[in-house]
């Protein structure tokens, strides 16, 4: 029992990070109809930036945080300008290969900048762990879950309640009609990218203290974020959030109770099952494919 609670705690913690990654992917999809295979690399950039800014350069945490997020946003912006917008034929298969190329490219750059060795980052707050029913709850976990809820809530508020956010969604639904009503769809695309990659960087910052950060951490995280977004149904923010938590808990339970080697396989098996059986996600009945 105590063990299971412990697994639940750690599952919810990683799940919250998957949730943030999934929300970023899902948000980009709902405003540009694009799936960014390089999303995980922005998570990695966030983690590596916090290593450099906070651990190595010893900047104050809020400043380092802002710097890392800004880096994520800027790289996303550049990426959109240089690689996505310029594509001659923006069909899915072309964009898949472009974003995969970008992901490999960013990983290669990170390997040269930060080297191959993993870094560890200390916890953000130095409180002792809290004991609940015999299981230890790290303060970092509370940080992470709180930040995830805040971020997802913020993005949700932005898309649903602000004019800019609504305009962004309108662009995805019908670009031409949005253009006719005077929404600058190009600017919306850039903004969507910046917000999405920025939130990816946030996920990276929060995961840094609970794992080792290295140049190749992004691919797995990106794929798991995608898996979570698919569980919740692409384009649905709260679905993505719930999917992330669910995936984290399942992984943690599977790794603890079955075999730790299979931890990563769980996400992928889940991903395939979702793709095959209900590509619209568990929480919505909508079909994802339009003829």
């Amino acid at each position: 029992m105590q063990e299971i609670i412990q697994y639940l705690f750690s599952g919810i913690t990683t799940g919250a990070i998957y949730a943030v990654i999934a929300v970023g992917l899902s948000m980009l999809y709902s405003s540009t109809e694009l799936i960014n295979f390089a999303h995980g690399e922005f998570v990695m950039l966030g983690a590596m930036a916090i290593v450099t800014l906070w651990v190595h350069m010893a900047l104050p945490l809020p400043l380092a945080f802002a710097g890392a997020v800004a880096l994520g946003c800027c790289m996303g912006l550049l990426f959109e300008r240089l690689a996505i917008r310029t594509a001659r034929t923006p069909q899915p298969i072309v964009l898949v290969i472009i974003t995969v190329g970008a992901s490999i490219f960013l990983r290669g750059v990170a390997m040269i900048v930060w080297g191959k060795d993993p870094f560890s980052v200390p916890a953000f707050s130095r409180h002792d762990s809290i004991e609940i029913a015999g299981a230890a709850l790290l303060p970092q976990s509370i940080w992470i879950v709180g930040a995830a809820v805040l971020l997802a809530g913020g993005i949700h508020f932005f898309l649903k309640k602000t004019l800019t956010g609504k305009a962004m969604v309108a662009c995805a639904v019908n670009k031409k009609a949005a253009w006719l009503t005077g929404i600058p769809s190009e600017k919306m695309g850039i903004l969507a990218f910046a917000v999405s990659t920025g939130s990816g960087a946030v996920a990276g910052i929060f995961i840094a203290p609970i794992t080792m950060s290295s140049y190749d951490m992004g691919t797995m995280l990106g794929l798991k974020g995608f898996c979570a977004a698919m569980i919740g149904g692409l384009g649905s923010l709260w679905g993505a959030f719930a999917g992330g938590i669910l995936l984290g808990v399942l992984e943690s339970l599977g790794a603890g109770l079955i075999s730790s080697g299979l931890k990563d396989a769980i996400a992928f098996i889940l991903l395939l099952l979702i793709l095959y059986i209900c590509p619209g996600g568990l929480f919505s009945a909508k079909e994802a494919k339009r003829f």
């Binding site: 799936i35 964009l95 898949v96 995969v100 995608f226 395939l272 793709l275 494919k289």
Partner: peptide, 11 residues
């Protein structure tokens, strides 16, 4: 098709 196919084969 498209993105889903990419993700499926990757998985």
């Amino acid at each position: 098709s498209g993105y889903y196919l990419g993700m499926g084969t990757l998985g």
